[in-house]
Amino acid sequence: SYYEILDVPRSASADDIKKAYRRKALQWHPDKNPDNKEFAEKKFKEVAEAYEVLSDKHKREIYDR
């Protein structure tokens, strides 16, 4: 789930989600993982997609249904 990707509970606040996104984006940024760039790019995209949905109140409500 998007919550698992960002490592936050379903009850996470918008601020918690933003902090988790920043932490995970740094962790999986391809430039930070030169030895495993392809895998890092995949993870980085997953993190971005999760944040896009969970950071938008309307999209998150739909996702949580």
Score class of each variant (00 low, 15 high):
residue 47 V to W: 02
residue 10 R to P: 13
residue 42 K to E: 11
residue 6 L to H: 00
residue 48 A to I: 15
residue 1 S to R: 11
residue 22 R to L: 15
residue 4 E to H: 10
residue 7 D to I: 02
residue 16 D to S: 06
residue 21 Y to L: 04
residue 15 D to P: 06
residue 32 K to N: 15
residue 22 R to P: 02
residue 60 R to N: 02
residue 12 A to G: 04
residue 65 R to L: 11
residue 9 P to Y: 05
residue 62 I to T: 08
residue 46 E to M: 11
residue 20 A to R: 01
residue 42 K to T: 10
residue 23 R to E: 15
residue 39 F to Y: 15
residue 16 D to F: 07
residue 14 A to C: 10
residue 28 W to L: 06
residue 20 A to C: 04
residue 9 P to W: 06
residue 4 E to L: 09
residue 49 E to N: 07
residue 55 S to W: 05
residue 25 A to T: 12
residue 44 F to R: 07
residue 48 A to G: 09
residue 17 I to Y: 01
residue 13 S to Q: 05
residue 25 A to M: 14
residue 33 N to Y: 14
residue 41 E to F: 11
residue 6 L to F: 02
residue 59 K to T: 07
residue 40 A to Y: 08
residue 62 I to H: 12
residue 11 S to L: 09
residue 36 N to Q: 12
residue 31 D to V: 05
residue 61 E to Q: 09
residue 4 E to M: 10
residue 47 V to D: 01
residue 44 F to E: 03
residue 51 Y to W: 09
residue 50 A to M: 01
residue 55 S to C: 06
residue 44 F to S: 10
residue 15 D to H: 11
residue 39 F to T: 07
residue 18 K to T: 14
residue 34 P to A: 11
residue 54 L to Y: 00
residue 56 D to L: 03
residue 49 E to L: 11
residue 17 I to S: 00
residue 14 A to E: 13
residue 26 L to P: 02
residue 15 D to R: 10
residue 57 K to H: 12
residue 53 V to K: 03
residue 2 Y to E: 01
residue 49 E to F: 07
residue 38 E to K: 11
residue 60 R to A: 02
residue 39 F to D: 08
residue 33 N to A: 04
residue 5 I to C: 07
residue 48 A to N: 14
residue 22 R to H: 15
residue 25 A to C: 15
residue 17 I to A: 01
residue 35 D to V: 09
residue 55 S to D: 05
residue 6 L to R: 00
residue 43 K to G: 03
residue 58 H to W: 12
residue 20 A to N: 03
residue 26 L to S: 13
residue 29 H to R: 09
residue 22 R to T: 14
residue 36 N to C: 15
residue 10 R to L: 09
residue 24 K to N: 04
residue 49 E to T: 09
residue 28 W to V: 03
residue 9 P to C: 12
residue 65 R to G: 10
residue 25 A to R: 14
residue 3 Y to M: 00
residue 30 P to Q: 06
residue 27 Q to S: 06
residue 7 D to G: 15
residue 50 A to T: 01
residue 52 E to L: 12
residue 48 A to D: 07
residue 64 D to P: 02
residue 50 A to C: 01
residue 23 R to I: 14
residue 34 P to K: 13
residue 34 P to M: 13
residue 16 D to R: 07
residue 47 V to F: 05
residue 52 E to S: 13
residue 44 F to W: 14
residue 30 P to G: 05
residue 13 S to P: 05
residue 63 Y to C: 03
residue 56 D to Y: 03
residue 13 S to C: 06
residue 46 E to S: 06
residue 22 R to Y: 15
residue 17 I to Q: 00
residue 57 K to E: 15
residue 41 E to P: 02
residue 35 D to T: 13
residue 25 A to Y: 15
residue 6 L to Y: 01
residue 15 D to Q: 08
residue 4 E to I: 09
residue 32 K to G: 10
residue 10 R to S: 10
residue 8 V to A: 04
residue 28 W to K: 01
residue 8 V to P: 00
residue 65 R to S: 13
residue 34 P to E: 14
residue 10 R to Y: 12
residue 32 K to A: 15
residue 32 K to R: 14
residue 30 P to H: 05
residue 40 A to G: 04
residue 15 D to W: 09
residue 63 Y to F: 05
residue 52 E to I: 11
residue 12 A to Y: 01
residue 42 K to Y: 12
residue 52 E to H: 10
residue 26 L to C: 13
residue 62 I to D: 10
residue 47 V to R: 01
residue 6 L to A: 00
residue 17 I to W: 00
residue 16 D to M: 12
residue 5 I to L: 09
residue 45 K to D: 06
residue 51 Y to K: 01
residue 42 K to V: 11
residue 27 Q to Y: 11
residue 4 E to S: 10
residue 46 E to Y: 05
residue 60 R to L: 02
residue 28 W to H: 04
residue 51 Y to D: 01
residue 12 A to L: 01
residue 38 E to C: 08
residue 30 P to A: 07
residue 5 I to T: 07
residue 8 V to N: 00
residue 47 V to N: 02
residue 62 I to E: 15
residue 9 P to M: 07
residue 33 N to H: 15
residue 18 K to F: 14
residue 49 E to H: 10
residue 51 Y to N: 03
residue 3 Y to C: 01
residue 14 A to M: 15
residue 41 E to R: 12
residue 27 Q to N: 04
residue 20 A to P: 00
residue 53 V to W: 07
residue 53 V to N: 05
residue 37 K to M: 11
residue 46 E to T: 05
residue 43 K to I: 10
residue 9 P to L: 07
residue 13 S to V: 05
residue 49 E to S: 06
residue 61 E to S: 08
residue 25 A to D: 02
residue 29 H to C: 10
residue 35 D to I: 09
residue 29 H to V: 05
residue 14 A to W: 07
residue 64 D to K: 01
residue 59 K to V: 04
residue 22 R to F: 15
residue 28 W to Q: 02
residue 48 A to H: 13
residue 6 L to M: 05
residue 7 D to E: 14
residue 30 P to I: 06
residue 15 D to M: 13
residue 61 E to C: 12
residue 38 E to D: 10
residue 56 D to W: 02
residue 44 F to I: 06
residue 42 K to S: 10
residue 33 N to Q: 06
residue 41 E to M: 14
residue 28 W to P: 01
residue 49 E to Q: 09
residue 32 K to Q: 14
residue 3 Y to D: 00
residue 57 K to R: 13
residue 12 A to K: 02
residue 50 A to D: 01
residue 37 K to Q: 12
residue 21 Y to D: 00
residue 40 A to F: 08
residue 39 F to V: 11
residue 31 D to S: 13
residue 38 E to Q: 12
residue 46 E to C: 09
residue 2 Y to H: 05
residue 3 Y to P: 00
residue 2 Y to G: 01
residue 51 Y to F: 12
residue 47 V to I: 15
residue 38 E to N: 09
residue 52 E to Q: 12
residue 26 L to A: 14
residue 58 H to C: 14
residue 24 K to S: 05
residue 57 K to Y: 09
residue 43 K to R: 13
residue 51 Y to L: 03
residue 36 N to L: 07
residue 50 A to K: 00
residue 19 K to W: 09
residue 1 S to A: 08
residue 14 A to G: 10
residue 25 A to W: 15
residue 19 K to D: 15
residue 58 H to Q: 14
residue 11 S to N: 15
residue 20 A to V: 02
residue 56 D to C: 06
residue 47 V to A: 10
residue 27 Q to L: 13
residue 34 P to C: 09
residue 23 R to H: 09
residue 11 S to I: 07
residue 14 A to R: 08
residue 37 K to R: 15
residue 22 R to C: 14
residue 52 E to N: 11
residue 21 Y to F: 13
residue 19 K to T: 11
residue 9 P to I: 06
residue 46 E to F: 05
residue 30 P to L: 04
residue 9 P to T: 07
residue 1 S to C: 14
residue 64 D to C: 03
residue 51 Y to G: 03
residue 27 Q to G: 04
residue 52 E to C: 12
residue 2 Y to A: 04
residue 33 N to S: 06
residue 59 K to N: 06
residue 43 K to E: 03
residue 50 A to V: 03
residue 63 Y to T: 02
residue 10 R to Q: 11
residue 19 K to V: 12
residue 25 A to L: 15
residue 56 D to E: 04
residue 11 S to Q: 11
residue 31 D to K: 09
residue 12 A to N: 01
residue 35 D to P: 05
residue 39 F to G: 06
residue 18 K to R: 13
residue 57 K to S: 12
residue 24 K to A: 10
residue 38 E to A: 14
residue 40 A to E: 03
residue 54 L to S: 01
residue 4 E to V: 11
residue 47 V to M: 07
residue 33 N to F: 15
residue 17 I to G: 00
residue 2 Y to S: 02
residue 10 R to V: 11
residue 43 K to Q: 07
residue 31 D to M: 09
residue 25 A to H: 10
residue 38 E to F: 08
residue 31 D to G: 08
residue 45 K to V: 07
residue 34 P to V: 11
residue 53 V to F: 05
residue 28 W to E: 02
residue 52 E to K: 08
residue 48 A to V: 15
residue 58 H to D: 13
residue 5 I to M: 06
residue 50 A to G: 02
residue 8 V to M: 04
residue 14 A to D: 14
